[in-house]
Amino acid sequence: MATWVTICETCKREDWDETSGQTDGDRLAALVENLPVPDGVRVRRHSCLMGCGKGCNVTVQAAGKLCYTLGNFVPDAESADAILTYAGLHAESETGQVPYRQWPQGVKGHFVTRHPPLPDDG
């Protein structure tokens, strides 16, 4: 199963420059999409993750694993790299839990929520 990184493409930070023609989420998504994606990771965009007070928001999810929402990213290369690095570690983890000592510096302080895996319907 793939780990999915979902990037809110409509996120606007408080200091968003509306004359730029791009939302902050769109800028972050473009930066992530232009980096090499780790094995087992896929990237997609979504319109509004409803975390407006913490833009830019992303989720890291996989079936049967702990899933996370992260926010308050600056749309820059460092954030994009940290998001994909963390997603790669999530993909490698059997449970989705990544030991704190392995977290890239760029995701520390950005975790908003953790979601348990959905129960098996069987």
Results as ranks from 00 to 15, higher is better:
Thr10Cys: 08
Arg101Ser: 07
Trp103Asn: 01
Trp4Thr: 15
Arg45His: 13
Ser79Cys: 07
Gly21Lys: 08
Cys11Asn: 05
Cys8Pro: 02
Lys12Met: 13
Arg27Asp: 02
Lys108Leu: 13
Glu94Arg: 15
Arg42Phe: 01
Pro119Leu: 02
Ala77Leu: 13
Leu49Thr: 04
Ala63Leu: 12
Pro119His: 00
Lys12Gln: 14
Phe73Tyr: 09
Phe73Gly: 02
Cys8Val: 01
Ala77Phe: 03
Ala2Glu: 15
Pro75Gly: 06
Gly106Gln: 10
Gly25Trp: 11
Ala82Val: 00
Thr85Cys: 10
Glu9Tyr: 03
Leu35Asp: 07
Pro116Cys: 10
Leu35Lys: 08
Asp81Met: 09
Cys56Leu: 02
Pro117Ile: 05
Pro104Ala: 09
Pro75Glu: 05
Glu94Ile: 02
Leu49Val: 12
Gly88Arg: 04
His110Lys: 14
Asn57Ser: 09
Arg27Trp: 00
Ala87Tyr: 02
Tyr68Ala: 13
Ala2Ser: 15
Gly96His: 08
Gly88Asn: 01
Thr113Gly: 04
Gln22His: 14
Val32Ile: 14
His115Asp: 12
Cys56Arg: 00
Ala29Tyr: 09
Thr85Ser: 11
Gly40Met: 05
Val37Asp: 01
Lys54Met: 15
Phe111Thr: 13
Lys65Tyr: 10
Pro75Asn: 05
Gly64His: 08
Ala63Ser: 10
Arg114Leu: 07
Lys54Leu: 14
Leu35Met: 10
His110Trp: 09
His115Ala: 13
Asn34Thr: 05
Pro75Leu: 04
Trp4Ser: 09
Thr85Ile: 01
Leu31Val: 05
Leu70Val: 11
Asn34Glu: 09
Thr19Tyr: 09
Gly40Pro: 08
His110Glu: 07
Arg101Glu: 14
Asn72Asp: 15
